[in-house]
Design a protein around this nucleic acid. Structure first.
Lengths: 118, 118
DNA sequence: CGGTATCCTGTGGGATACTG
DNA sequence: CAGTATCCCACAGGATACCG
């Protein structure tokens, strides 16, 4: 049976590629971590910087700006001295959490079962 | 209240960073797509190449080799002419599917609600 | 504290050509 | 068909320095 006649599995990811679409919300290896560390509530820039292993200020800023533009996180600035800025998930952003939780839980399981990760 | 005294949210991702660990299984933007297109059963190299939007042979090979080493996919070669090679998910690899499904479904929802993705 | 500006690098990934 | 071999590049991300 020629290859060309083989039915295309993947009855069709509802869109050209829903997966890719979806991963675009998590673009850059740090975005998921940012979202993750905001899951319990608002958090300040410096806190995020320390929460998330070794992320540079530059990259953190960049990711936060992106996530803002995509409506995933919100920025709240308070005019104090020294300055204080809090970031939090929007309602939209919160919707990503179940997916991240799924990823975490499967990651744990795989690790427990001895899968190599790098 | 000084920043340093603020309780660390994220009661602790069970490990240093389970999320990161977990994402490492999906490293490279294509890996998830490979896994995804194997979800319905074994698939040949050329089929994957055509299933997955515009992935180059080189990259597909690379990702497949990696996923093999991590015990996520299996390679089955048949000594025919022309050669035929099928790839499939291992039991371990199949465990990633629920997470991918979660990602897809949330991606759909976000798109429907007008979130920008890039 | 919460960033920006600059510079630099690694590497994921594309294009093209070739092979068993 | 199922790759390998080369070459090449964009760009995510790190380091360092500086600013309001």
């Amino acid at each position: 049976m020629p290859l060309s006649l083989r039915k295309n599995h993947s009855p069709e990811p509802p869109e050209p590629c829903a997966l890719t679409q979806c991963f675009s919300f998590l673009a850059g290896q740090w975005a998921p971590n940012v979202i993750w560390h905001l899951r319990a509530g608002p958090r300040r820039f410096g806190e995020l910087r320390h929460d998330i292993p070794p992320i540079s200020a530059k990259v953190l800023t960049t990711r936060l700006r992106e996530l803002q533009e995509r409506g995933i996180v919100e920025r709240h600035e308070r005019a104090t001295s020294p300055p204080s800025v809090e970031y939090s998930l929007t309602e939209l952003g919160a919707e990503l959490l179940p997916a991240l939780e799924a990823i975490v839980s499967v990651g744990e399981r795989l690790k427990a079962r001895g899968a190599r990760s790098a």
